[in-house]
């Protein structure tokens, strides 16, 4: 991986990160098969920077986010947070200190909340775990967080249970939970996918405000390129576990270089905020990256593939000028 992709003084630096999941093998089969959910991903994010992560379902976006937060252990590669090797922090006080600074807004707001806890318990949990403030202080923080995500008046929401809320309201609770502790880095996994257009803009504005307020960095996972355009300075596109393009958001959207990105963007000619997941019209079907061949991941579906692509390893992510990185031999 060229070192230029990752600035040394970045808040988050990801280097050649991979995660393979073993497939359940047959009873008598001795061969282990692996899903290469994430492979060779490298990037860096500065404090206060929002990086978008887009790509088809199953391309490894959530896995990347969970790797960064050490919810799962990487198969290969490194994650540095403030220069600390995240995957190798000894568990205990140091790990807790790391967790104090990061948060995740989970993709599924239904399953990511304990059905037997009130919203107060859910939102105050990070504060309680890290013993921040007393009960009175926490109630204030919870009330403020609820108010900030537009669940007002907070008193009427605080002691409700998640099942009494709509999907959109739950997503806002998930955001309230993530911001109460004032983290330095948030992995936001499609945090606005269930919100109405009217509320979505408000929530996105809020996230950008918070970023201003305490220099919050974010990995913003989304299917929606219009949302990415609004939220992110830089945008990364993933395909079957590989990062195929990374650059300033406008640059990537206006001037896509990778054949996959081009197809992805042509699928959404007019970015419409109500746009939901939709099949991307590229020939062939997307498969899971099970024991993938070493050549370019996109080769089977690539309209401009050459024999060279077939005979060489997966192309490296290279700077094509102005921090616009592309992993393709024919650009």
């Amino acid at each position: 991986m060229p070192d230029t992709v990752t600035a040394t003084d970045a808040l988050i630096k990801v280097d050649n990160l991979s995660k393979y999941y073993p497939l359940a093998s047959g009873l008598f089969s001795r061969v282990r098969h692996y899903i290469h959910a994430v492979e060779g991903v490298s990037f860096a994010a500065d404090a206060g920077e929002v990086i978008g992560l887009a790509g088809e379902s199953g391309c490894g976006k959530t896995t990347t986010g969970k790797l960064l937060l050490r919810l799962i252990a990487p198969t290969n590669g490194y994650i540095y947070f403030n220069g600390i090797d995240v995957a190798r922090i000894p568990s205990g006080g140091k790990l807790k200190a790391y967790r104090r600074q990061v948060q995740m807004i989970f993709q599924d707001p239904y399953e990511s909340m304990n059905p037997r806890k009130t919203l107060y318990d859910i939102i105050a949990e990070p504060l309680a775990v890290h013993k921040i403030g007393n009960i009175v202080g926490r109630e204030q923080v919870v009330a403020d967080s609820l108010a900030r995500v537009g669940l007002v008046p907070p008193e009427t929401f605080m002691f409700r249970y998640p099942h009494e809320l709509s999907g959109g309201q739950r997503q806002r609770v998930a955001i309230a939970r993530a911001i109460g502790i004032k983290p330095r880095f948030i992995v936001a996994d499609e945090p606005t996918s269930m919100l109405d257009v009217s509320i979505r803009t408000g929530v996105m504005k809020l996230l950008l405000e918070l970023r201003q307020e305490y220099n919050l960095a974010m990995l913003y996972i989304t299917h929606d390129l219009a949302v990415a355009r609004y939220m992110c300075e830089r945008l990364a596109i993933m395909y079957l576990g590989r990062m195929v393009e990374l650059g300033p958001t406008e640059e990537v959207l206006q001037n896509p270089l990778h054949p996959y990105t081009k197809a992805l963007i042509s699928a959404v000619p007019v970015p419409d905020p109500t746009f939901k997941r939709e099949a991307i019209p590229i020939k062939g079907s997307i498969s899971r990256p099970v024991d993938p061949p070493s050549y370019c991941r996109f080769y089977p579906r690539c309209p401009v593939a050459t024999d060279y692509c077939r005979e060489n390893k997966h192309p490296p992510l290279e700077d094509k000028g102005d921090g616009h990185y592309v992993a393709c031999y024919n650009v």
Binding site: K66, L95, R99, M104, D108, N114, P126, V129
Partner: peptide, 17 residues
């Protein structure tokens, strides 16, 4: 295996918690 267990983990919750 519910995500709320992962959410608690992200928040620094111990095994006991």
């Amino acid at each position: 295996v519910k995500p709320f267990v992962e959410a608690a983990r992200v928040s620094g919750g111990s095994n006991f918690h």
